[in-house]
Simulated assay, not measured.
Amino acid sequence: MRSFEQIADWVAQHYTVTHMEPFLLALELSLDQGRRRQSVFLSELMDEDGGRVLRISTAVADREHSRDALAKALEFNWQSRAGYLALGEMGGRSYLHLCENRAYPGLDATELERALLRIGGLGDGIERQLQGGDAF
């Protein structure tokens, strides 16, 4: 997959897309044998060398309702081998997101699906720890 458009087309064929606009889409993953759901966002960014990068992210906590989320995020970032936690805004509110950036070269359907499921599943677990439930 060499472009965001190719990725968006593939995702729309395999997942429930809940929002789509140029270079941004949201999908809903079904997890835990359908008992849980997790929203995952895909967007295109430019890296420091001007290359296009796919960002895969999922909200895991509302910053205002998770007092120790930042300390936990820093601990997670130190231990994580895949993905990182960062603050991002959605709808004018600040949320803690689990993110991963992937360069387009070498990104195929199998790798994309693996990354979506890893970020969605790990994000759901972090969300349960920080929020105590299924908020996103």
Rank of each mutant, 00 (worst) to 15 (best):
Q129N: 10
R118S: 12
R102E: 08
R118H: 11
L87G: 03
I56K: 05
S66M: 05
F136M: 01
D47T: 12
S80E: 08
R37L: 14
F136Y: 14
M46N: 10
E28Y: 03
Q131E: 15
L130E: 04
H65Y: 13
I7S: 01
W78R: 15
R2L: 09
Q79A: 14
L29G: 03
L112D: 01
L70I: 15
F23D: 13
L130P: 03
L96N: 02
G50P: 07
T16L: 15
L70W: 14
D62Q: 05
V17D: 09
G133T: 10
S39V: 12
L29D: 02
R114G: 03
D134N: 14
N101G: 14
S57D: 08
L31Y: 11
D62R: 02
R52S: 08
L107C: 11
S3F: 05
H14Q: 15
A59C: 04
F41R: 06
H19K: 15
G121S: 10
F23I: 03
M90S: 06
R128V: 09
A71F: 10
Q38C: 02
L112I: 09
E5A: 15
T18Y: 07
V60T: 07
G91H: 09
W10K: 05
S94V: 13
D32S: 12
L27T: 05
E28T: 15
A103I: 08
P105D: 07
F136N: 03
L116W: 04
E48V: 15
G132I: 08
A73G: 11
E111N: 06
Q79Y: 12
E100G: 04
Q33S: 13
G106T: 10
F23M: 10
T110R: 14
E89T: 11
R52Q: 11
I126T: 04
D134H: 05
L24A: 05
A61E: 03
R37G: 08
D124P: 00
L98N: 01
P105W: 09
G133D: 13
R81V: 07
A12P: 00
Q129I: 10
A115P: 02
P105T: 10
G34T: 11
D68K: 09
Q129W: 12
Q6P: 01
Q13S: 13
A86I: 09
N101W: 09
R102D: 06
T58H: 01
A103Q: 11
W78I: 14
Q131V: 13
L112P: 00
D62C: 01
S43W: 03
L74G: 09
D134E: 14
S30D: 08
G51Y: 12
S30G: 07
I7G: 02
F136S: 01
E89L: 11
A71D: 06
W10D: 05
Q129A: 09
I126S: 01
Y104Q: 08
D47S: 08
C99W: 00
Q38I: 01
I126V: 15
L85N: 01
L29W: 05
Q129Y: 12
Q129K: 13
Q131N: 03
L42P: 03
M90T: 06
F41C: 03
